[in-house]
Amino acid sequence: MNQGKTKKIVYKTVLHIVLIILSVTMLVPFLWMISSSLKTTQEMFASPPTWIPRYVAWENYTYMLQAAPWMRYFGNTFFISALTIAGQLITCSMAAYAFARLRFKGRNLIFLIYLGTMMIPFQVVMIPQFKIVKILGLVNTHWSLIVPGIFNAFGTFLLRQFFQTIPKELEEAAKIDGCGYPRIFWEIVIKNSKPAIITLVVFTFMNTWNDFQRPLIFLNDDSLWTLSMGLAKFQGTYVTQWNQMMAGALITMVPVLVLYIFAQKYFVQGIVMSGLKE
């Protein structure tokens, strides 16, 4: 009995040690980024490298904030993300309701085809999309990212899975009270799906905020650039001062990291949902 208890304590201690070592290893790039972003150029070349800067060089941040219009990039990224999220909430939730609850001819086939589109690589559609965006007169505007971005098969799937768990009795009762489908959709389905909707918001935010290839293709003017693009182009244009680049990298990450702190649960939930595709 006592031996078993000791064994358990040893086992748990070993596990904690292993997990702490692995966690710190995973976080090393972030710690190194923060440390580097606060070093003077001279200290960047110190051997052996230091973790805690001898002199905290905040000027890397003030320099970076002046060297490129980060606030504008921030605003652009925020605008694109917010509108993409709003659009996805509308299109995904409507389609998800139809797929989850309404019965009509061809529903399952359409659903399968729509899920299948997730397998189509972006490279196949990007050139014609560029052309279509041009025809619609959206080229070199934020709408060139937002309009194609509001359709998301994964988001539709995620909401559909959740809508299916809402008790049917609620809808039946509303039907008896004479509610039409649009009202049932809004009053019962949407109002009871807060966790799924927040999950979609968080997920879409992460994806649009971090998106790189689409802005790279669709946006020319530097006044329209997103944070990812601004950072990549900054690296390409200026002689790389690593301490300043690390400050820039951290600036672009902050919003997603802050959101993670507040909505941790939903990040994880979105990923778990993505694993339940079968």
Binding site: F30, M33, W209, S228, A232, T252, F267
Partner: peptide, 14 residues
């Protein structure tokens, strides 16, 4: 989990 929520662009530079 944190590595997978930040952008490839920023973390690739790190």
């Amino acid at each position: 989990f944190i590595p997978c929520i930040v952008s490839y662009v920023a973390i690739a530079m790190v």
